[in-house]
Amino acid sequence: MNVFRILGDVSHLLAMVILLVKIWRSKSCAGISGKSQILFALVFTSRYLDLLTNFISIYNTVMKVVFLLCAYVTVYLIYGKFRKTFDSENDSFRLEFLLVPVIGLSFLENYSFTPTEILWTFSIYLESVAILPQLFMISKTGEAETITTHYLFFLGLYRALYLANWIWRYHTENFYDQIAVVSGVVQTIFYCDFFYLYITKVLKGKKLSLP
C-alpha cells in the first residue's frame, strides 16, 4: 500500500459519497447518467467476486463492501426512489457499443483464460469506458450541476492517482499490471477535456457549460 493508492481509494469513495449526497439532498438525479451507474455496479460486481474467497486485508474487504453498497444504492435511487427525476431521454448512450467490445476484448486479452480472471479483466476494461454515458449526457445537455462536476473530478482523479501508484509500485516492488495500467491510462484520458473545463471554469466559480 502507498500514499497514491490510499489517496486514490479515498478520492473514489469521496466521489461516490458526493453523488449519493447530491441525489439524496436534492431528491433528484437530474443530469446523472443512470447507465454509467449501472456500469459501475457491474464493474464492482464482476471485480469483487473474490470478496468471500480471497481475503487480502480488512481494508480491502471493507472498501469492497462499501463500494458495492454505494454503487447499488445509487442505482436504486436513480431507477427506484427518484425515477421520476431521471432524465432518461438524455441518457441515451447505447450500452451495447461498450459491452460488446469490452466482453470481446476480455476474452481475447487476459492473463489467464479462467472465469474469475476473465471477469476481473472485463471489470477493468469496462471501468475504463463506464463514464462515457455520463460524459455523453453532459455534452448533450451542454451543462452540469456544480456538485456533479465535483463528483466527476474526484472520480477522474482516483484513476489518475492509481497511475501514480503503478509508477510507484513499478519502481519499488517491480510490480507491473499491464491490463490495469493501459486501461487506467485510457480511462484517465477520457477525463482530460472535463478536467480542463473543471479547472478553467468550475474552480473559478463559473457553471460548467459546454460551448
Binding site: 493508492r5 481509494d9 473514489h12 471485480r47 473474490d50 480471497n54 487480502i56 480491502n60 472498501m63 469492497k64 463500494f67 492473463y111 489467464s112 480472471e117 476481473w120 492509481y162 501508484n165 499490471d177 490495469a180
Partner: peptide, 10 residues
Amino acid sequence: EPKDLSHDEL
C-alpha cells in the same frame, strides 16, 4: 513467468 493473479488492488 505466470502472472501473480492476486489482484490486491480495489
